[in-house]
């Protein structure tokens, strides 16, 4: 009798990207998308670098969707190691054969083979998927070293002693998109020069006013004229520099969406709207017991900004 345990197939997941109805392509974003796609189609990995709230991740996902390939999404983390990228030896595949072909002879064969499990980078390289590595500088630099040969020599070197599986030839359709925050952000490591040199880095800054208005309007459901007011308040606060963390497009969307959901119209007389603005924007300044005076002054400044932008009634209010 022959007994062989059949190894089970390992299910793996990939991401299929779809743009939501809120996604907006303006002339500014369209130009960035076209440039990035050009680099990617030429075989170069693209790196979006910029402050928080500039739409790096959304842009990376949108561009990955344009490549029309399955996507592997990874998020950089301090605890990430190279095995989290490429995979590792995980358990054993055990096989036992009992051969009773001749009744008077019993032959046993047993062997245990280490089981290699691919992780996201290896799967993407093997299958030709698009890798989106979000916030990659939050991983320690040595964890990302494995990317060097994969991006340049198009060979992924696996840390295994098994010669047959030690190298993976990178699929021609494999593409990589990276995002990162500037180095002054907390928890961010320097990108290794060798890796940076392999990437086409595109610096993203806060979008222009029309783009911010379009995105906020699309994501909130508020009237365009009211969205303009919200965006103007946030942009003026951003220009003032009186904060520890710059208010971003997310602040615009937060204020506008909450206002729309609660039926609040951005107006001078609505204290609820003022309170929402203060809740969202005041948190951009660090709270310590020593900076109460600064926070008081900041609150006064914010109220003045809101007053200033609400001073001109909307067309609907004029009627």
């Amino acid at each position: 009798m022959t007994v062989v345990t059949k190894p089970k197939a390992q299910p793996r997941a990939f991401i299929s990207l779809r743009s939501s109805v809120d996604f907006v392509v303006t002339s500014t974003t369209s130009e960035i998308i076209d440039r990035a796609l050009g680099y990617l189609r030429a075989g170069f990995p693209v790196h979006f670098r910029g402050p928080a709230g500039t739409g790096k991740t959304t842009l990376a996902l949108h561009i990955a969707a344009q490549l029309d390939r399955p996507v592997m999404l990874m998020v950089g983390d301090e605890q990430l190691t190279s095995s989290d990228l490429v995979g590792e030896q995980n358990g054993y595949r055990y096989r036992r054969v009992v051969d009773r072909y001749i009744h008077s002879v019993v032959k046993y064969e047993e062997d245990a083979v280490q089981n290699w499990v691919d992780n996201r980078l290896t799967t993407a390289c093997r299958e030709g998927f698009t890798l989106v590595y979000d916030e990659f500088t939050r991983s320690r630099p040595e964890a990302n070293n494995v990317l060097l040969a994969a991006l340049e020599e198009r060979v992924l070197v696996l840390p295994t002693s098994n010669g047959a599986n030690a190298y993976v030839k990178v699929h021609p359709d494999f593409r990589a998109i990276f995002t990162s925050n500037p180095q002054e952000y907390a928890g961010v490591h320097d990108a290794p020069d060798a890796l940076s040199d392999r990437l086409v880095t595109m610096d993203l800054d806060y979008y222009d006013r029309p783009t911010e208005i379009s995105i906020t309007a699309s994501n909130s459901g508020l009237d365009l004229a009211e969205v303009e007011r919200v965006v103007d308040i946030v942009r003026e606060f951003r220009d003032s520099g009186e904060y520890d963390q710059a208010p971003t497009l997310r602040a615009c969307i937060m204020i506008a969406r909450v206002s729309a959901l609660q039926g609040i119209r951005p107006s001078l007389g609505d204290k609820r709207f003022v309170q929402i603005c203060l809740d969202v924007l005041e948190s951009k300044t660090a709270y310590t017991s020593k900076n109460r005076d600064r926070r008081t002054a900041q609150r006064k400044m914010l109220v003045q900004m809101i007053d200033h932008h609400m001073a001109h009634p909307l067309d609907a209010e004029r009627v």
């Binding site: 022959t2 062989v4 390992q10 793996r12 997941a13 991401i15 299929s16 939501s20 999404l73 054969v97």
Partner: peptide, 26 residues
């Protein structure tokens, strides 16, 4: 009709991977 020798089993192909699609809206 079972393969008489265990060697016949060792040449079986590796199990095929099953893929699970996760839809992500951005």
């Amino acid at each position: 009709p079972e393969p008489a020798r265990p060697a016949a089993r060792s040449t079986e192909p590796e199990p095929s991977t099953t893929w699970h699609e996760v839809v992500l809206e951005y």
